[in-house]
């Protein structure tokens, strides 16, 4: 098991300072606050939560697109949070990213061939002829024909663009792919195509995914394990089926119950939460969820809860279980 560990995130913190005036000193926002998790080879880990919960920041910090304030990001045994320059660029070959908006993630002035050969070029892989051969093969894998090589992104539909973005991430045969809401911007009929493609590529290239999404139906379909975040903190982590069958944290319960039903004949006992996610600039004391929590106790506003291991794989951070 230990050998299969691809990524280990240890006590990751990412704080920002926001300026709310010209002369006042900035306010500190704890975008990610003390998050730890591991990802093992070949699995898909979902990172879910609502806007502002820090899931995207976590993803970008894992990729070293922003520097963590503190904590370790151990990838294949090395802490990459301290790497710079050439060493970091070498690691980038092994961790890739897929973005939400396929209209923004492709350079509008480059042809598909240029976009797809660039990663190979950057890492000095193969000669020119072999690169193009690789690109053609990749296009075939993602279900597009060679005719697209000379096209520009604005000649493609959203779904086709997202395929290209996925191909760009996969062409270096990375170990880990961070997918940040990869299907949220797509039309419903295209979403299923892209999800199928992601699963197919995982199988073919033995990929490991960190799948960031707010769409719980999609997450349930594609992931093996799920990490739920709320206001910069991890609140629960469990295997997907177990989480959906038996959510422990009151927030997870509310979140799962809020998923729209799939058929009008279905019935859910919805837990409608009061209020909204508080501002991360002024997070509540103690447990960040206590103000909205239907099960809140006295202690919840006073002390921050600790992680409780309910089983080997099911963890939650809540006073109810300590």
């Amino acid at each position: 098991m230990e050998n299969d560990r691809v990524l280990q995130v240890v006590n990751l913190k990412k704080y920002y300072t926001v300026n709310d005036g010209w002369f006042s000193s900035g306010q500190r926002v704890k975008a990610v606050d003390d998050v730890s998790f591991s990802i093992y080879k070949g699995e898909t880990v979902g990172l879910v939560g609502e806007s502002g919960c820090g899931k995207s920041t976590t993803g970008r910090t894992v990729l070293q697109l922003s520097q963590p304030t503190s904590g370790k990001i151990i990838f294949e045994g090395t802490d990459i949070s301290k790497l710079k320059g050439q060493e970091l660029r070498q690691i980038r070959r092994r961790i890739q990213m897929i973005f939400q908006d396929p209209y923004a993630s492709l350079d509008p002035h480059k042809t598909i061939q240029q976009i797809l050969t660039e990663p190979l070029h950057v890492h000095h892989l193969y000669d020119k002829k072999k690169r193009i051969e690789k690109v053609r093969k990749m296009l075939k894998t993602i279900g597009l024909t060679d005719t697209y090589l000379t096209r520009y992104p604005n000649e493609l539909s959203g779904g086709q663009r997202q395929r290209i973005a996925i191909a760009r991430a996969v062409i270096l045969h990375p170990l880990l792919i961070v997918a940040d809401e990869p299907v949220s911007a797509l039309d419903v009929s295209v979403q299923a195509q892209v999800i199928n493609l992601l699963m197919h590529l995982q199988h073919e290239f033995q990929l490991t995914y960190l799948f960031i999404s707010h769409d719980l139906n999609v997450v349930r379909h594609i992931t093996d394990r799920i990490i739920v975040m709320y206001l910069g903190k991890m609140v629960e982590a469990a295997p997907t089926e177990e989480l959906f069958r038996d959510p422990k944290h009151p927030y997870t319960r509310a979140l799962l119950s809020a998923i729209p039903i799939r058929n009008p004949d279905e019935h859910t006992d919805r837990i409608v939460l009061n209020g909204e996610v508080p501002s991360p600039v002024y997070p509540p004391s103690g447990c960040p969820f206590h103000e909205r929590c239907p099960n809140a106790m006295d202690i919840c506003s006073k002390a921050a809860p600790r992680q409780v291991n309910l089983s080997e794989k099911h963890k939650t951070i809540c006073h109810l279980y300590s």
């Binding site: 295209v190 299923a192 699963m199």
Partner: peptide, 22 residues
């Protein structure tokens, strides 16, 4: 459209997808 919605009991399986693009 209805068939391409992910279903609880078919986790990890290939989703039905309408071909092509709008």
């Amino acid at each position: 459209l209805l068939a391409s919605m992910p279903k609880e009991d078919e986790r990890k399986q290939k989703l039905y997808a309408i071909k092509g693009n709008v």
